[in-house]
Simulated scan of single mutants.
Amino acid sequence: MGMKLIWAVIAVVTTVLAWSVVMVTLGQTAAIATLVPSLGLLVQQIVQAATAGTRTGGRAPTAPGDDTRDSAGEPR
């Protein structure tokens, strides 16, 4: 993810969370109760996407035909 995209997502999440706080302050607890599950999922997905490239083992395994090692694990 590019830095611009990350900052845009953070801005959207912050705006939605701020709006939720305003609604609760105004007494609209039903509004926040309906938003909490989707906001939790949104934050989880953002964190997962942001950390996907930094985890070890994040690369997909190569196809069997692309392996340059023989059955003993030695290079061909």
Results as ranks from 00 to 15, higher is better:
Met1His: 06
Gly2Pro: 02
Met3Lys: 13
Met3Pro: 13
Met3Thr: 14
Lys4Pro: 01
Leu5Phe: 08
Leu5Val: 10
Leu5His: 08
Leu5Lys: 13
Leu5Met: 10
Ile6Glu: 13
Ile6Tyr: 11
Val9Thr: 12
Ile10Lys: 01
Ile10Ala: 07
Ile10Val: 08
Ile10Tyr: 02
Ala11Tyr: 08
Val12Phe: 09
Val12Ser: 13
Val13Ala: 05
Val13Arg: 00
Thr14Lys: 00
Thr14Phe: 07
Thr15Ser: 12
Thr15Glu: 12
Val16Gly: 04
Val16Lys: 05
Val16Asp: 05
Leu17Phe: 10
Ala18Asp: 02
Trp19Phe: 11
Ser20Thr: 13
Ser20Pro: 05
Val22Lys: 12
Val22Arg: 12
Met23Tyr: 03
Val24Ala: 13
Thr25Tyr: 09
Thr25Asn: 11
Leu26Pro: 00
Gln28Glu: 14
Gln28Phe: 10
Gln28Ile: 04
Ala30Met: 13
Ala30His: 12
Ala30Leu: 10
Ala30Ile: 10
Ala31Val: 12
Ala31Ser: 14
Ile32Pro: 09
Thr34Phe: 14
Leu35His: 08
Val36Asn: 03
Ser38Val: 13
Leu39Glu: 04
Leu39Val: 00
Gly40Cys: 03
Gly40Leu: 06
Leu41Asp: 02
Leu41Gly: 06
Leu42Pro: 00
Gln44Pro: 00
Gln44Thr: 08
Gln44Gly: 07
Gln44Arg: 05
Gln44Ile: 07
Gln44Phe: 09
Ile46Lys: 03
Gln48Asp: 10
Gln48Arg: 10
Ala49Tyr: 10
Ala49Gly: 15
Ala50Phe: 07
Ala50Trp: 06
Ala50Asn: 06
Thr51Val: 07
Ala52Phe: 05
Ala52Cys: 01
Ala52Pro: 00
Gly53Ile: 00
Gly53Val: 01
Arg55Ser: 13
Arg55Cys: 06
Thr56Pro: 14
Thr56Asp: 15
Thr56Lys: 15
Gly57Val: 03
Gly57Leu: 05
Gly57Thr: 04
Gly58Thr: 04
Arg59Asn: 08
Arg59Asp: 11
Ala60Ser: 10
Ala60Lys: 14
Ala60Arg: 13
Pro61Ile: 05
Pro61Thr: 06
Pro61His: 05
Pro61Gln: 05
Thr62Asp: 15
Pro64Thr: 10
Gly65Thr: 15
Gly65Phe: 10
Asp66Tyr: 08
Asp67Thr: 08
Asp67Cys: 11
Asp67Ser: 12
Thr68Pro: 15
Thr68Trp: 13
Asp70Arg: 01
Asp70Cys: 00
Ala72Gly: 07
Gly73Asn: 03
Gly73His: 04
Glu74Ala: 10
Pro75Gly: 00
Arg76Ala: 05
Arg76Pro: 08
